[in-house]
Simulated assay, not measured.
Amino acid sequence: MPTLTVESVTAALAGVIDPEIRRPITDLGMVRSVAVEPGPDGAAVTVGIDLTTAGCPLKETLTRDTTAVVSALEGVASVSVQLGVMSDEQRLGLRTMLRGGAGEPVIPFAQPGSLTRVYAIASGKGGVGKSSVTANLAAAMAADGLSVGVVDADVYGFSLPRMLGVTLAPTKVDDMILPPVVHGVKVISIGMFVPAGQPVVWRGPMLHRALQQFLADVFWGDLDVLLLDLPPGTGDIAISVAQMLPSSELVIVTTPQVAAAEVAERAGSIALQTRQHIAGVVENMSWLEQADGSRLELFGAGGGATVADSLSRATGAPVPLLAQVPLDMALREAGDEGTPVVLSAPDSPAAVALRSVARALGHRSRGLAGRSLGLSPVPR
């Protein structure tokens, strides 16, 4: 039987991943102590763990995972996990480490070296299903193995916490916010900070500041994709996104209806002023499939293609119609229940269409706009 040591236990603890930060607790400085007391039937192991905050909502998860990892070691008879709380100095060191050595918060996605693809999901008018598209794209990308974050930037009409089934509140580590993770997606929304039923009554500067905090104060980690669910129209938030995230791309959501398509064109045309690239158009509520296999086009037909063609002409660059998403009872039910349809009913017509969009966007390479090319002038 191999000898159980403090070093072997500590090495095993590298397999315990903090559920909020998604890194090993050994890397985060959370393991305060490890004690091994030999006994006739095996060793009694005591592990001291310092939580980021006293009210950490996932302390039971950490305790359970730590116990499981250590118990799996040969020669362990019992495991005791003793929880503590990080000191101010520990939290400062943790924040600095997570920010890559920067003491003050910065927007990581605006840095030249960022490899995160940023998509702002926009629409001209409300009620076209923009938030349900965002929630399902995020869940589908995460299911495909990508690291995904979502910002619910629709401050007045936030709905992503319900659609994604978020039940935990964010955790604060001083001035850093750790977002809850659900379905493998990191999510932040103003809905996590206001009492249920209370409206958000803010003017433009407050909206700008809220978005800035969501991008800079939240610890996102190394994301492959960041999705922003924008409010309808071309107001303050849309302008702020273009300013803070100049490399972000727009995904325009519309319905086939002519009136919705005309408004969606105006929402997409903001790219001419903000110099953002339009990744494509998603036509939602395209048709209702009947029992006999025929399609009932409740909102007309062709709106998505019209928007894509119009924006292609306006921008001088091809804007594809990414998908037509049919009306699907499963899509609505899944949103109400907090499990996106791409997970709860992956073979449904709406889920198949949305997964195709997620794969098209998730595997596009990020452009060179705003990125450092690593070139230095050579004097003659």
Rank of each mutant, 00 (worst) to 15 (best):
I107Y: 04
L115A: 14
L115M: 15
G101V: 10
P112Q: 05
S123L: 04
L92Q: 13
S131V: 04
S123F: 05
G126T: 05
A139V: 07
G113C: 01
I121S: 08
Q90W: 01
Q90I: 00
G124C: 11
A140G: 15
P112D: 02
I107E: 06
A102I: 03
S87L: 10
A139H: 08
E104W: 03
I107L: 07
L137V: 04
Q90L: 02
P112R: 04
L137T: 01
A139M: 09
Q111C: 00
A110H: 02
R99C: 12
S131T: 11
G93H: 03
T116S: 09
D88G: 03
L146G: 02
Y119M: 09
V106A: 15
I121P: 02
Q90V: 02
K125E: 10
G129V: 01
E104T: 14
T96E: 11
G113Q: 15
A102C: 06
L94C: 03
A122C: 15
V106S: 13
A122E: 01
G103Y: 09
Y119S: 07
V133M: 07
G127Q: 06
L137K: 01
L146W: 06
G126V: 06
A139E: 06
G113K: 13
A102T: 09
V128C: 06
K130A: 09
E89F: 06
G101Q: 10
D144N: 13
M97W: 01
V106E: 14
V118G: 01
G100I: 06
T134G: 04
E104V: 13
P105D: 13
K125A: 14
G101E: 11
D88N: 11
E89T: 15
G101F: 07
D88C: 01
A110N: 08
R91L: 11
A122I: 05
L146S: 05
A138V: 04
G124V: 07
